[in-house]
Write a protein that binds this DNA or RNA. Structure first.
Lengths: 139, 139
DNA sequence: ATAAACTCTGTAGTAGTATACAGGGTCAAC
DNA sequence: GTTGACCCTGTATACTACTACAGAGTTTAT
């Protein structure tokens, strides 16, 4: 039989079976084909999609945002200009996240270095890491 | 009077008043001083702390992880070795996030470029972005 | 041909993270 | 000295993202 059962893709993506059905309900993956006995059968490629979702979630994207990210490639109907604008807005979002994380990492690295000896930990301020950033913008 | 009321720090940090009290209950900020009439009064520096929390949440850290991050600098009692190990583990986490986001950003940038003309959007695969990464590790 | 291990739909429950409200006290200003 | 904007505690509700059944059908292995 061509295709994977739900437990196979769930296992392959490292998530639960119920979560796969949940994502289908939420529109994050397309409803798959069904066997004559009504079992879902998935193409291999859905494992990739599910892994993407898992990783993106770990990066602080909500399911709604992930849906938007995924739709950037799958919506040939949408106006090019609109897609382009959405894409660029996502790129900016991601750039902001990268800058924040980079700053945080630098602070932790200097913390790691400076506390190697015996300086008091409380002198190494991680708080400043995200402070000097991009203002009071939303989110 | 020295210090800020709860609505001032909430406003300054861009979060709600109830959220500030919630973070206090959860141990993310210390219980502040009180006026004789039992009002909370916060030092300016708590705005920085609350902003850090907001930004870190946006980067995919849970409140529990943020608590750990904040405690890295505030726990001079903890054994240096333990703190050092925790710090290094956080640094690795963050490095992974940065790599994932960088890959995602690259893909979106090429998507943005290649869809400038008229190529079908569906040909630009964001799915691969997080795929060739660091294996099937947890999370 | 039966038991174990899967699948289905549908509904309910959980954890994490806020938000809202009720009932009551406090402060500033007119 | 009363009105409106604050603050308090405590409880309840909401939203997101799962996770766990219940009750019933299917597939696989023995």
């Amino acid at each position: 039989m061509e295709g994977l059962t739900i437990s196979k893709i769930a296992g392959g993506a490292g998530i639960g079976i119920e979560t796969v059905r949940f994502y289908e309900k939420e529109g994050l993956i397309d409803p798959p084909a069904r066997t004559p006995s009504n079992y879902r059968i998935y193409p291999e490629s859905d494992i990739m999609r599910l892994r993407f979702i898992r990783r993106a979630k770990n990066l602080g994207f909500t399911l709604k945002e992930i849906k938007e990210l995924l739709s950037l490639q799958l919506d040939p109907q949408a106006s090019k200009a609109e897609v382009k604008q959405q894409t660029e807005s996502k790129i900016a979002d991601i750039g902001r996240k990268i800058r924040d994380l980079t700053r945080m990492k630098e602070v932790l690295e200097s913390l790691d270095a400076c506390c190697d000896g015996q300086g008091p930990t409380s002198e190494c301020p991680i708080l400043g890491a995200l402070e000097t950033g991009h203002g009071l913008d939303e989110n």
